[in-house]
């Protein structure tokens, strides 16, 4: 009881919540990216993968629940900490604002956080709920017939011949709007920037950052964020550059 109480009440506890939920969300965005990079393979892959996730049934809802709770706690903790931090300066702000070494990423966590949150809502509306860009939403596209088995961890989880949602097509069509893609790229860029401080911060908060390791950690964080951004850039980038085309219009992927 004391332990959970202090997690939610104490300053370090809330930061641990930030870190742990942040870690869960980082895990999610990595998995999400890796899964989606299957768009560059035969449509069977992404579509089979999507079908596999749908088949998880209640487990999918458990995963969604964990993610939702993580987001809520992450945002709640950020809000509470921010409000307290604003109060802690006292009645007068400094006349001269001076930063010695705090990074831009660390100083813009709130801003990048808000934009990422807005993007997440839009992204769900776009690809999960279909409340925007309805014409290219999976429900409104023709079903796709699997041409081979989709295997997960070596086990065939979606059989050839199964009729599934054409997620591959939805993604490609979705990103063919330059404005949508641009928003996506900006948001993912800000998310990567958010993670630059978030990742480093997470280790600090969990007491796992010190000494020589902290220098290595900094490098790891930079490499991770750049890689993550580049990975995310690939999909809309390839669509906009014409490298990734709707499979209904011929071979889905060409290297030109």
């Amino acid at each position: 009881m004391h332990f959970f109480g202090s997690l939610f009440r104490s300053s370090i506890g809330r930061k641990v919540l930030m870190a742990v939920t942040g870690l869960i969300l980082i895990g999610f965005v990595i998995g999400h990216l890796v899964g989606n990079l299957q768009v560059f393979q035969h449509p069977d892959h992404l579509n089979g993968y999507a079908q596999f996730l749908q088949q998880l049934g209640p487990w999918l809802w458990v995963a969604r629940g964990v993610l939702l709770v993580s987001v809520v706690i992450h945002v709640w903790a950020a809000t509470v900490l921010t409000l307290e931090n604003n109060r802690a300066r006292g009645p007068e702000a400094y006349r001269i604002k001076h930063t010695i070494r705090a990074t831009l990423a660390s100083r813009t966590m709130r801003l990048t956080g808000y934009v990422v949150l807005a993007f997440v809502v839009y992204h769900l509306a776009h690809f999960t709920w279909g409340s925007v860009s309805r014409e290219s939403f999976k429900d409104n596209l023709e079903l796709y017939t699997m041409q081979s088995d989709y295997k997960f961890a070596g086990i065939p989880v979606v059989k050839a011949g199964a009729e599934v949602h054409d997620v591959h097509e939805m993604v490609v069509l979705g990103f063919s709007h330059p404005l949508v893609s641009l928003f996506y790229i900006v948001a993912v860029g800000l998310l990567s920037f958010h993670l630059l401080h978030g990742l480093d911060s997470m280790f600090q908060t969990l007491g796992l950052r010190s000494g020589r390791w902290s220098g290595a950690l900094r490098t790891i964080a930079v490499v991770f964020c750049v890689t993550y951004f580049a990975g995310n850039l690939l999909i809309p980038g390839a669509v906009l550059a014409g490298n990734l085309r709707p499979h209904t219009a011929g071979p889905a992927f060409s290297s030109r």
Binding site: I12, K15, N85, A88, T99, R101, A102, S106, S201
Partner: peptide
Amino acid sequence: GNCTNYYE
């Protein structure tokens, strides 16, 4: 306030 790891 709470630490947000600015290292200032």
